[in-house]
Computed example of a mutant assay.
Amino acid sequence: MPRKPVYEQVINDVTASIRSGTLKPGDKLPTIAELARQYNSSDNPIKRALWILDERGWIEVHQGKGSFVADEPPA
């Protein structure tokens, strides 16, 4: 079975952490650089994952401040 693209791994990991309560509303996510190191990846797949998570309502991205878990993430 082929490995999932990095951006999908990030999306799955972040949503799982939010669902389990490991990440709570308002919690700050690691920086793009930190996530890139964690996933042994370049910045682009991380940015794509954060953009998708933002679009789906899981997180809120604030330019210059970082990414935070949404106050009311999807159920």
Rank of each mutant, 00 (worst) to 15 (best):
I32T: 15
Q38W: 09
Q9C: 04
E55C: 01
A36K: 14
G26V: 11
E55Q: 12
P5E: 10
Y7E: 14
I32Y: 09
A36N: 13
P25R: 04
V61T: 15
L29P: 09
D54C: 01
R56P: 00
K65T: 05
P2V: 14
I59E: 09
S41E: 09
I32R: 14
A16F: 03
T31E: 13
R37Y: 07
M1L: 14
A75L: 10
N12Y: 05
P45N: 12
R56W: 03
T22K: 15
N44Y: 12
V14T: 11
R37A: 06
P30H: 05
Y7W: 09
I18R: 11
M1A: 14
D43P: 04
D54F: 01
P30W: 08
M1I: 12
R56G: 00
R48E: 13
E34R: 11
R48D: 06
A49N: 14
P45H: 08
S20K: 12
E60H: 01
H62G: 00
K47R: 15
D13C: 06
E60T: 12
V14Q: 06
M1Q: 14
E55T: 13
K28H: 04
I18W: 11
A36G: 10
R19E: 13
Y39V: 06
L50F: 14
E60F: 00
V6N: 10
Q38C: 00
N40Q: 15
M1Y: 12
V61D: 04
G64S: 00
G21L: 11
N40R: 15
I18Y: 08
P2N: 09
Q38A: 14
R19A: 01
A33H: 11
K65N: 03
A70T: 06
K28E: 14
K65D: 02
D71G: 08
P74L: 01
K65E: 12
A33M: 09
Q9V: 02
G21S: 09
G64R: 02
G57N: 13
P73R: 09
Y39G: 08
E72A: 06
L53E: 14
V10N: 11
N12R: 15
V14H: 03
E60G: 00
K28T: 11
S67L: 05
D71I: 01
P73M: 07
D54I: 01
Y7F: 04
D43A: 03
Q38H: 13
V6C: 05
S42W: 04
P45C: 05
K47L: 05
T22N: 11
P45G: 09
F68M: 08
G57F: 08
S41T: 09
V69L: 05
P5S: 10
W58S: 05
Y39R: 14
S17V: 00
G57T: 11
Y7I: 00
T31M: 13
D54T: 12
V69D: 07
I18Q: 07
I52A: 03
N12G: 07
V6L: 04
L53P: 13
K65C: 00
V10P: 08
L35S: 11
A16P: 01
G57Y: 08
I52Y: 02
P2Y: 13
P5W: 06
V69K: 09
W58C: 02
V61A: 02
